[in-house]
Simulated scan of single mutants.
Amino acid sequence: MTDHLAKLKKGSESFEIVINPEEAMAFRQGKGELGQALVFEKIFSDAKKGLEASESRLEAVFNTSDPLEVATQILQHGDIQVSSEYRQKIRDQKRKQIINWIHRHSIDPRQNTPHPVTRIEAALEEAKVRIDENKDAESQVEKIVDQLKVVLAIRITKKSLAVTLPAAHAAKCFQLVRQYGKVLKEAWDENGNWTGTVEIPGGLEPEFYEKVNAATHGQNNIEVIQ
């Protein structure tokens, strides 16, 4: 029950709350609700011993005895402590997210093709990349890609494509096109044909061609703008 704590030191005193770790991390990042982050709406001086901090000490230290206000300060400024098993679980999740991001957004500049997931996984091991479970996956990508460049030819890139879908497939397939990237401009002509300029992650280019060709039975036109 007390494997997951958030602690805040004030002088020689420690103030603790028992937390749900995922919700606590989300709250700290401005994405979650305080009530979901707390297991108990109580402030402890020693949670493992079940010792609660007195209202008088809370008032003296935090200028309030409201446990929710104090808990907010602890979550925002304190040290979030979780079990080693949970920390490894989050690290594995972040690793998968980072690998997927790199696979989608990068290419091998020598061949202008995406890196397979297995190659990225091997490069992470070879470069001894450390995943920080306390940071968002995407916020770590730039630094990690720089580390990978020591062992892997890699470039983050985007592709702008001019796409034309015939009327027979346009109504259904232009939504598929939107799923792959950002539509910069689009138009429908009087015959129901759809044309658009789409910016997609560079690593998704082969998959994009494959999916659009399958959905339109090859009845489309895609040209690389840049």
Rank of each mutant, 00 (worst) to 15 (best):
D46S: 12
I80C: 07
R95V: 01
I102Y: 04
A37N: 05
R87Q: 14
R57H: 06
V61Y: 01
P67S: 05
V61A: 05
L75H: 07
A47Y: 05
A53N: 01
F44N: 04
D92C: 00
R104P: 09
A71C: 07
H105Q: 11
L51I: 15
S54N: 10
N100H: 10
Y86N: 04
S65M: 10
G35Y: 11
A122I: 05
P67D: 06
V61R: 01
H115W: 14
S56M: 12
Q88P: 08
H77Q: 14
R119P: 05
E121L: 09
D92L: 03
I80D: 04
I120C: 07
L51M: 12
H103M: 12
S45M: 04
S65N: 12
E59T: 10
R95P: 02
E52W: 07
Y86G: 03
H103V: 09
Q36I: 07
S84I: 15
K96P: 00
E41S: 13
R104N: 15
S84C: 06
N63Y: 14
I107Q: 01
D66L: 10
D92W: 00
R104A: 14
R95A: 00
P109Y: 12
R110H: 09
R57E: 13
G78P: 10
R104F: 03
N100F: 03
K89P: 05
T118F: 12
G32V: 04
H115D: 03
R104M: 14
S65G: 06
E59N: 11
A122L: 11
F62V: 11
S45W: 04
H115P: 09
P67N: 07
D66S: 09
V39S: 08
Q93D: 05
K89T: 09
A37Q: 06
R104H: 14
V61G: 02
G78M: 07
G35E: 07
K49L: 15
K94W: 00
Q111N: 10
E85W: 11
Q81V: 15
T72D: 05
F44Y: 15
H105Y: 09
A71Y: 01
G50V: 08
A53D: 02
L34T: 08
S45L: 05
V39R: 13
K96F: 04
R91C: 00
R57Y: 03
S45H: 05
N63A: 13
S83F: 12
A122S: 14
K94R: 11
I98L: 00
H103T: 08
K94I: 01
Q97H: 02
E69H: 12
P116N: 04
I90G: 00
Q111M: 08
G78T: 04
L34C: 08
L38H: 09
Q93N: 07
I98N: 00
A47I: 11
L75E: 02
R104T: 06
I90S: 00
I98T: 01
W101G: 12
I43N: 01
R104K: 15
D46Y: 02
E69I: 14
F40M: 08
A37P: 02
S54M: 11
F40H: 15
D108H: 06
Q111F: 12
K48F: 09
Q93S: 02
F62E: 01
I90T: 03
D108L: 06
